[in-house]
Amino acid sequence: MGPLIPQGIIDGGWSYVIAFVTGAFFGMILESSGFSSSRKIVGLFYGYDFTVLRVFFTATITAMIGLLYFNYMGWIDLSMVYFPPMYLWAAISGGLIMGLGFIMGGFCPGTGLCAVGIGKLDAVANVVGLYLGIFLFSEAYPFFEKLYMGNAMGNLRVNEVLGISSGLFAFLFASIALAAFIITAWIQKRVKPVDY
């Protein structure tokens, strides 16, 4: 029963090998989906290319439903699966700052690294900036601490907050994504194409 490494079913010594192989697949999937191009990525925000939305939502739904299925079959102990704990205002402000950084830089950290892998120099600047930003945060931590540690809500699950079952949430999430796929396909046809 999973997860395997936290329960010692796979020896921890393998974890770096597994990490590298996982990352290699991650990089290959991101690159071959087009995420090494910032202009393709930001198409999402200007309506000329919705690749990010399709890949992101499809991946989230696949893994979400997969986890529920694995849990139902008794293959994984969901209580041992990590996700970031909820600190209300830190999650919101952090997300908003990242969104601003996304539209300015055209990359998120994962896609930026992916673009570095094929030689994009703007992505190198992006990753250097990322490094500086994290350094700035760590130096200015006393300033951020109250926001970072405030409004701790623990390991809350979204379906618990909404008061519905995890299965129903997955169904609603998938339905919203499906609607988004259809609507964005309709929008993309009507937006002036951008050559990139």
Binding site: G101, P109, L132, G133
Partner: peptide, 9 residues
């Protein structure tokens, strides 16, 4: 954008 992503993340 990278700097902001660093702080936000």
């Amino acid at each position: 954008g990278g700097i902001l992503f660093g702080i936000g993340s």
